[in-house]
Design a protein around this nucleic acid. Structure first.
Lengths: 121, 121
DNA sequence: CGGGATCCCATATGATACTG
DNA sequence: CAGTATCATATGGGATCCCG
């Protein structure tokens, strides 16, 4: 049982506790590029270049860093094929698919909220 | 009707289109501090200091910047009371409450995913 | 040629003061 | 109390180079 980071307010883990590791997890996915990468990977595996063009605006450096962090947290798998030209495919893990659900809701909110904002004027 | 930023793939607005304003909205709430601030404000209005201590780890400068951005996007209201000592209260708007729903799911995911990660080892 | 790594700069974040 | 000012560091982003 893991209770070290609990405040006793929201269950065993609590994002409001800065020492709980789940806060790092929140920091990881509560991020524009993470939200878009995971959304783009939801239908199936994708190569680096295709991912980059779908995200439409991310630099290869930032995309690489984002993918590395997601891989480290076991949200995606990275598979390298020894081919010429080289091919690298990224795939959502089960954990990644579970994250895709709330992230899809977040993207949908952003798209819907814009209409709310516009009608406000 | 607003169609300028649509790619025709996901409806009138599309976060995958870098020119769609909804992408800025995603960038605004897909952020650790925004997620925590909005979550903390969900039960009701709160003062700056209480907010700061609940978030447990944010600097006043970053909290101020976060609150200003959320206010500018009409997710929160800021009310200043002419008292001594000064009192400033922050309240979720209707739009803010609508954002609180997917953000709560995101926080819950982070807290639950940690168990998944731990059990993986 | 694709997938980065590296260099350099702009902005964001953070700790520590200090003030109306 | 609710910030602002200042300084240090981390991250974001563009351009270029590299290596198989």
């Amino acid at each position: 049982m893991v209770t070290a980071c609990s405040t006793g307010l929201h269950g065993p883990h609590d994002v409001f506790n800065p020492d709980c590791p789940c806060r790092d997890l929140l920091d990881l996915i509560a991020n524009k590029w993470s939200a878009l990468v995971i959304g783009a990977l939801e239908p199936g595996p994708m190569r680096f270049g295709e991912l980059r063009s779908r995200l439409n605006g991310v630099s290869s450096k930032v995309l690489t860093a984002t993918l590395r962090r997601l891989e480290e947290a076991a949200l995606i798998d990275r598979e390298v094929f020894a081919e010429v030209p080289p091919r690298v495919e990224y795939t959502l893990t089960d954990l990644g698919h579970s994250a895709a659900v709330p992230l899809a809701a977040l993207r949908t909110w952003a798209e819907g909220a814009l209409d709310h904002e516009l009608s406000r004027r």
